[in-house]
C-alpha cells in the first residue's frame, strides 16, 4: 500500500516537474487568425486596437467577442450606401481594419484551390500537380483566382467555412474575393514518374500479366503572389457598387 502511494506521489511530482503551469504553456491556437465572413449582418469589429505598431497575436473569433468591447473601438467608415436588394459588399469592416495590416507585412502565403483541392503556396514555390493539366504548355502563365486563405506572419484572412453538402444541395466551397490578391503561376514543365509495373495473377495459374503505367504531372512555379492594398481593392470595387 505504501509502495503504491509512493509511486503515485512520484508520478504526480514528475508530471508537475515536466509541465509548467497551464498558463505558461504556449498556446498554439494563437497563431493568428483574422476570421471574417462575408455576412454583413455580422458587424462585430475585431479587437485589434491599442499599440497597433506591434501586431498582437490574438486568436480572433468574431462571435466570441464580448459586445462590451465594441464601443471602445473607433467606428470604421461604413461602406457606401447600399440598396437592400444589392448583394452585400465584400468589403466588411474587418477587412477594412485588417487588410492594411496584412498588406504591410512582407511575404504572404495563399491557400489556392485547383479543381477543389487546396495547395498552400508562397512566391517562388514549385508545385507538382497530381495531374496533367490539359491544354497548357511550358511557358504559359496561369492566373490562380480561387483562394481560401491569405496569410502573412501574424495575420490570416480566411474565407468562410465551406457549406456542407446535403441531399438537396451540393457542397459549396466559399472562396475569398478574387480581387483581393493576384497570384500567377508559370507552367515550367511536365514531369513523369518511373514506369510502374503491376503484376496481375490469378489463382492456380502460372501466367502473370504485367500492367504498365506511367503518369505525367504538370509542374507549376508560383511567379507572383501579391495582396492588394485596401485602396486598390476599393478602387476595384467601386465601379460595381455604383
Amino acid at each position: 500500500m505504501a509502495l503504491v502511494a509512493r509511486t503515485l506521489r512520484r508520478s504526480f511530482l514528475e508530471t508537475r516537474s515536466i509541465l509548467p503551469p497551464t498558463f505558461l504553456l504556449p498556446f498554439r491556437a494563437n497563431i493568428t487568425t483574422v476570421a471574417h465572413s462575408n455576412e454583413t449582418g455580422n458587424l462585430t469589429e475585431l479587437p485589434i486596437q491599442a499599440s497597433q505598431s506591434i501586431p498582437i497575436v490574438k486568436d480572433i473569433q468574431e462571435n466570441a467577442i464580448p459586445i462590451s468591447q465594441t464601443p471602445k473601438l473607433p467606428h470604421p467608415p461604413r461602406p457606401t450606401t447600399q440598396n437592400k436588394n444589392a448583394p452585400p459588399s465584400p468589403l466588411t469592416p474587418s477587412i477594412r481594419h485588417l487588410l492594411p495590416l496584412l498588406h504591410t507585412q512582407p511575404s504572404h502565403y495563399l491557400t489556392i484551390h485547383l479543381h477543389g483541392h487546396p495547395y498552400l503556396i508562397t512566391k517562388g514555390d514549385t508545385v507538382r500537380l497530381p495531374f496533367l493539366m490539359p491544354n497548357v504548355k511550358p511557358g504559359d502563365v496561369l492566373r490562380l483566382d480561387r483562394a481560401t486563405h491569405i496569410g502573412s506572419r501574424d495575420y490570416t484572412l480566411k474565407a468562410p467555412e465551406a457549406i456542407k453538402g446535403t441531399r438537396d444541395n451540393v457542397k459549396k466551397i466559399l472562396y475569398l474575393d478574387e480581387r483581393l490578391f493576384v497570384c500567377r503561376a508559370t507552367v515550367v514543365g511536365i514531369e513523369s514518374e518511373p514506369m510502374r509495373v503491376m503484376e496481375k495473377t490469378k489463382r492456380r495459374q502460372r501466367h502473370v500479366k504485367h500492367v504498365y503505367s506511367k503518369h505525367k504531372f504538370t509542374i507549376l512555379k508560383i511567379s507572383e503572389v501579391e495582396v492588394r492594398s485596401l485602396e486598390e481593392y476599393e478602387a476595384l470595387l467601386e465601379p460595381h457598387e455604383r
Binding site: L114, V136, K137, D145
Partner: peptide, 19 residues
C-alpha cells in the same frame, strides 16, 4: 456538373506568344 468544383485557374498568357 453540379458536383464539379471550380477549376480555379485560367490561362492568362500563352508561352508561345512570348517566344
Amino acid at each position: 456538373e453540379q458536383r464539379r468544383p471550380e477549376k480555379g485557374y485560367h490561362v492568362e498568357k500563352r508561352g508561345s506568344e512570348q517566344t
